[in-house]
Design a protein around this nucleic acid. Structure first.
Length: 198
DNA sequence: ACGGAGATGGACT
DNA sequence: GTCCATCTCCGTT
């Protein structure tokens, strides 16, 4: 996949969600570099009652109405969830990244997960990044990254989205954790990847 | 000013 | 399967 084809896929949440499988997230902090490959996504298109933007912009979902390729981060209970904004400015659509496969910086991810798990069993193996809240812990993604441009490259880019290599078979299922529009098959996973959630 | 809900995760039965 | 921690935001008073 080229950078151009990635940007083209971001024209809508529906096209972006499968296209983001296999793409790579590069997280840069003072501690060092963490690299992860996206293995599970969910599309939240406009006019979808399960989409946070469905009832128009608010302070929480404001970043969803920004430029395609920017980040939308929000808090749910104790956790954060990370989305890639798609569509046109103002359309209000995004792709939730639900699971990633660690590629590099594994020790940093383990430390970050352990830090968030004080008093509990330290997460190991697939448990490290196989859920939307878990990957945000492992990559230290929080509200400070809400709205940033993920397509900007450079040593000072805190979180960057990079095109991936072509992916194995993609499976499509219902989305997880929502209370409305449950039937839509808008969850995309790399088939047989052990790093997906559930 | 206040009550309720949530695209979750972890512990427990 | 059930329960609930913990916080931001929203809609309503």
């Amino acid at each position: 996949m080229t950078r151009l084809s990635l940007e083209r896929a971001l024209a809508s949440a529906i096209t972006a969600a499968p296209a983001l499988l296999g793409c790579v997230l590069a997280r840069r902090t003072k501690g060092g570099l963490r690299i992860a490959r996206i293995v599970e996504t969910e599309a939240y298109p406009p006019d979808d009652p399960a989409c946070h933007a469905f009832r128009g912009p608010t302070r929480r979902n404001g970043a969803m109405f920004g430029q395609r390729g920017s980040a939308y981060v929000y808090r749910i209970h104790r956790s954060f969830c990370f989305n890639v904004v798609a569509g046109r400015v103002g359309s209000g659509e995004a792709v939730l990244v639900r699971a990633v496969e660690p590629v590099d910086g594994l020790a940093l991810m383990e430390q970050a997960r352990e830090r968030s798990s004080v008093g509990r069993r330290a997460p190991r193996g697939y448990d490290l990044t196989n859920g939307p809240g878990k990957l945000c812990q492992a990559l230290d993604i929080d509200l400070s990254l809400n709205g940033i441009d993920l397509l900007r490259s450079g040593a000072d880019s805190p979180l960057e989205l990079l095109p991936g290599s072509r992916v194995e078979t993609i499976a499509t299922t219902s989305r997880i954790g929502i209370s409305v529009a449950k039937a839509a098959k808008l969850r995309f996973v790399i088939r047989r990847s052990p790093w997906t959630s559930r």
